[in-house]
Design a protein around this nucleic acid. Sequence first.
DNA 1: GTGAAAGCGCTAACAT
DNA 2: ATGTTAGCGCTTTCAC
Lengths: 339, 339
Amino acid sequence: MVTIADVARHAGVAASTVSYVLSGKRTISTDTRERVQRSVHALGYRPNASARALASQRSNVLALVIPLRTGMHVPVMMQFATAVVTTARRFDHDVLLLTADEGPDGLERVAQSSLVDALVVMDVELHDERVPVLRELPMPSVLIGYPDDADGLTCIDLDFVAAGAHCVDHLADLGHRSLALLGTPSAVYERQTGFAQRTLTGFVEAAERRGVLGVETPCEHTFDAILHTVEQLLSDHPDITGLVVQNEPIIGPLLDVLRRLGRRVPEDMSLVAICADDVAERQVPQLSSVSIPAERIGDQAVESLITKLEGGDVPGLTLVPPTLTARGSTCPHVDLTTA
Amino acid sequence: MVTIADVARHAGVAASTVSYVLSGKRTISTDTRERVQRSVHALGYRPNASARALASQRSNVLALVIPLRTGMHVPVMMQFATAVVTTARRFDHDVLLLTADEGPDGLERVAQSSLVDALVVMDVELHDERVPVLRELPMPSVLIGYPDDADGLTCIDLDFVAAGAHCVDHLADLGHRSLALLGTPSAVYERQTGFAQRTLTGFVEAAERRGVLGVETPCEHTFDAILHTVEQLLSDHPDITGLVVQNEPIIGPLLDVLRRLGRRVPEDMSLVAICADDVAERQVPQLSSVSIPAERIGDQAVESLITKLEGGDVPGLTLVPPTLTARGSTCPHVDLTTA
DNA sequence: GTGAAAGCGCTAACAT
DNA sequence: ATGTTAGCGCTTTCAC
């Protein structure tokens, strides 16, 4: 292994000079700088990460805590993780992957041991036991999603309230008067994950504001559950012509179910999904949807973290505005009673 | 920050004694050990990771290199990553996440700087430019998938040749005489990713061995492409009654296409998929499938790596045997010409 | 503009 | 069974 001392010797300078050439924290004469750079190249020198971290009190590593439960929003999570890594690299940082099942202790472990300089925590629940830990940690963190009490934290999330409302507005604009939200499995609501709750809030409020019927039901992932849920829904509320779906894995089967029940999309039933764009585009017909801008959120999270590491200020809560893309699964409602 | 010196002072011993209590590399009297452990607890001591790494020449971090292109086998990759992290933690290691777009340089960077002790590289192609780099790196690595020239490397993969053959055997056993393999998009074959090629090999060889027709076609992900591909296939080979699908995202739409073409599954067309179990189980009918044991492969990869780190020997190539689960999408072929 | 030297917090010989 | 000490390779004062 080639060390900084080897480079210094090769270039005929002191080790500290090599260090300063590399960090740029001191003005160096063009002559020495080039000589050092040549030596660095010639010897193939790579600074030792641990030595650097030990001396500088900075590991240049960020922790990314991802939920372990699979099946939730897997493709979105991947996009997100990819964005975090890519952006971290832009700022010369690496990413340590933690699964949420290590719990609060895991955060403490990597933080207290100075393995990482800062943390990105995904899938934050309304009453998340990691939140108090994060507050006490001697390093910055950014949460994706936000807890009930977000005081003193930095949180970034899609504005799910607005997302729910957008779906209602889109359908109401098209003349639909009776809408239903087909949500995540009830376990997700019970876990009090913020996003499901907040979408529901936006949906209900917007329905009220627009004066349309807005009913809501959770939905499990099995085909039978979907079939039963939809049948029940349509028998309880036969007037429903607009469906909002926030439950990525059921989207495919749901289209089957509607077909099987004799409801054409969009002629008999308009459908808006809250899901990744590529999922929406893969369906037949392509779905009108509010997409999850995972990449944008990931970028934002890392940028905020870097800002905080450099002593800068960032907003406590950043809500990324949702955008709705109209595709083939929604169309104007034809009111048969007045037509 | 509380250091090992603080703990030593608190317990009235030398710093090295604290170190040895923590590592267990020396026999310590019960008395001192307990005293030290109490001090560790009392002060909330956490060894500094960089200092430890610098002194011991071991970071206790593994690199996990995941493909950046999304949409391929995202859920499988997630399972895999999760398994790697979980198993790494069992061996007291952490996982640094790298995206494949850093290329060979990325591997060199984290290895040469001693950021990591070893690497797991996913999605290895037949002629992978990272392979020569890995060979020269001063640390162990494990590849998921395997390149053309696997000499001196440690590779783990599902036995895709056997997977392709299993599908043929299953269908041939049910009396089907004309089979087709609906493969990945042609770009995947062109990239020379091993798994697609090898499945094809197993499929073709088994078809020959069993004396049945075995044709093959790549398939893109759009609905129109699927429709067109299947129509073409059935018009070229009207006798086909058995389909093997290795292309996870098209599975849902494919069932639609068959329905639209008036082929019932399994009565008119038996279908075997090579995909994750949960995907197979979510379809209607549930699909007979060869699953990708991502968790098992991830475990295996980390275990091999740890063995190598400890100086142990591991096989150059580990092929995980595939298992076929028969579900509702395959049934015996009724030969109308002889019946 | 550059060098010398003192740590950063830990591990692992080398002592006893 | 435990203590002493010399690094690990780098950053960053302090000194000139």
